[in-house]
């Protein structure tokens, strides 16, 4: 398995999760990991797996093929992008598996997935993370 950046992920009993930082002094979270705390300005950040489920905080749909450094497949399809609030941790930005704005709404339950993003020169699929509407509560 190849991902866009292995340092973003960690394995948990529930499946792959994003890995962030948590400040041991004030409890602030970041994604991805970083050394300094943006909230209290300290430097006691520790790695922490982030929740795999959350709620959609805002969203849009990317309607045109971005310029480089975008490295997506040659055939462009609009893709959803959103911020997902992970309870009591942080709001993370991610691609969404849903690209129809009429099927997205602020507050909808979302779950983390690893999804194929592109194929590298050796033919190996490269995976990235995305949030999908949580099936049991989806419309």
């Amino acid at each position: 398995m190849r991902t866009v950046d292995d340092s973003l992920f960690t394995d948990t009993p529930d499946g792959v999760a994003l890995v962030g930082s948590r400040c041991a002094d004030c409890g602030a979270h970041t994604f991805p990991r970083q050394g300094g705390c943006p909230r209290c300005t300290g430097d006691s950040m520790q790695d922490v797996p982030l929740a795999r489920t959350g709620t959609l905080w805002s969203f849009t749909v990317q309607g045109f093929r971005p310029k480089p450094p975008y490295a997506g497949p040659p055939e462009f399809e609009p893709y959803g992008v959103g911020y997902v609030e992970l309870p009591e941790q942080v709001i993370v930005e991610a691609r969404l598996t849903e690209s129809d704005p009429d099927r997205l709404w602020i507050g909808m339950p979302m779950v983390l997935e690893l999804v194929p993003f592109r194929t590298d020169d050796a033919g190996t699929p490269v995976l990235t993370f995305a949030f999908a509407p949580a099936r049991e509560e989806g419309r």
């Binding site: 866009v4 950046d5 969203f59 971005p66 450094p69 992008v81 990235t128």
Partner: peptide, 20 residues
């Protein structure tokens, strides 16, 4: 990864900020 996966766009930010 942020640029490669198509998240490094000011246009997206404005879409999501006004949506919220």
């Amino acid at each position: 990864w942020y640029g490669e996966t198509g998240l490094m766009l000011t246009t997206q930010f404005f879409g999501m900020k006004i949506q919220r």
